[in-house]
Simulated scan of single mutants.
Amino acid sequence: MKKTLVTYVMLGLALIAFAAAQIERSVFYKTLSSGDESLIDKTTAELEAEKSTSRNKAYVAALTMKKAGFVKGAGEKLKVFKEGARVLEQEIKSQPDNAEYRFLRLTIQEHAPKILKYNKQIDEDKRAVVTAYSKLQPGVQSAVADYAKNSKVLSPSDLK
């Protein structure tokens, strides 16, 4: 009996430690919506230090694409943006029903310079986000709702 209890306590502590090691969604979304290059660098480094998961890859990809706006030189900007886009597209391809990844791509597409031509799936991503909104994690729902307040593509009324 004592052995079983100790095992459950140890398992519980391990799960708590694992959960604490993953970056908070709210921190990620605050970083993504910021214009703070140092915060983007810090959050990216924290994500890269964690265990590599699909979610972390998608988050790093989105932050990489955002970081491209701070890079000097058009060629280097394009290179950094495309690297982030490649990884995000990979994660979306591996999990096409993941509405959070679609939301990440939607936000980037809406703000990407037209010359990049990274705007082909706006309508598709919007539909995916709107359809899955009620099933999203609360932190993601909050980020979507906050984003919709200022978006030209997604409005708060779409989320009802």
Rank of each mutant, 00 (worst) to 15 (best):
K149W: 00
S33H: 11
G139M: 04
K160G: 15
L39H: 08
E124M: 14
Q121F: 13
Q22T: 13
A68H: 01
T31L: 00
E48D: 10
K82H: 05
G75P: 01
F81S: 04
T4A: 12
A143Q: 05
K135F: 00
H111P: 00
N98Y: 05
E100N: 05
A17C: 09
T44W: 03
I122L: 14
E24F: 04
I23D: 02
K3C: 07
G12S: 09
K160A: 08
K160Y: 05
L39V: 13
E124F: 09
T31N: 00
V6G: 11
V140D: 05
R105H: 07
K126M: 04
D123A: 15
K149V: 03
S151Q: 08
G139W: 02
K72T: 09
T64D: 12
V130M: 05
S155K: 12
T131P: 04
S157V: 08
K51E: 11
K120Y: 04
G139K: 06
I122E: 12
I115Y: 10
L159Y: 11
Y29P: 04
N119A: 15
D97F: 01
L78Y: 03
K72F: 14
L47C: 03
A61T: 08
K3E: 15
F70A: 12
Q95T: 11
S34N: 03
G73I: 14
M65L: 09
R86K: 11
K79P: 02
E46H: 03
F28I: 02
D146C: 00
K66E: 14
K57F: 03
S157C: 04
D36G: 00
L15E: 05
M65A: 11
F103L: 03
T53N: 07
A61I: 01
T7M: 11
K149D: 04
A132T: 05
A143P: 12
S34F: 00
L78D: 06
V153N: 03
Y147D: 06
K66P: 09
A148R: 06
E76R: 02
K51D: 09
Y59F: 12
T64Q: 15
K79V: 07
P156N: 06
V60H: 00
K66W: 04
S142D: 06
V144I: 10
G73D: 08
K126H: 12
K152R: 07
N150S: 10
A21G: 13
K67D: 10
V60T: 13
K57Q: 12
Q90K: 12
Y147Q: 06
Q22A: 11
R25F: 07
A68E: 04
K126Y: 12
N56W: 02
G35A: 13
G73W: 02
G35T: 10
P96M: 15
V130A: 09
Q109D: 10
Y29M: 06
E76K: 11
E91T: 12
A112G: 08
T131R: 07
Y101F: 14
G69D: 15
Q95R: 15
K66Q: 14
L13A: 14
K93V: 03
T107D: 01
K135W: 00
P96E: 14
G12M: 06
A20K: 15
Q141V: 05
I40Q: 01
L116P: 04
L32Y: 01
K30Q: 14
V9L: 13
K93S: 14
E24Q: 06
E110P: 03
K51W: 08
S94D: 15
F18C: 10
S34A: 06
L11W: 09
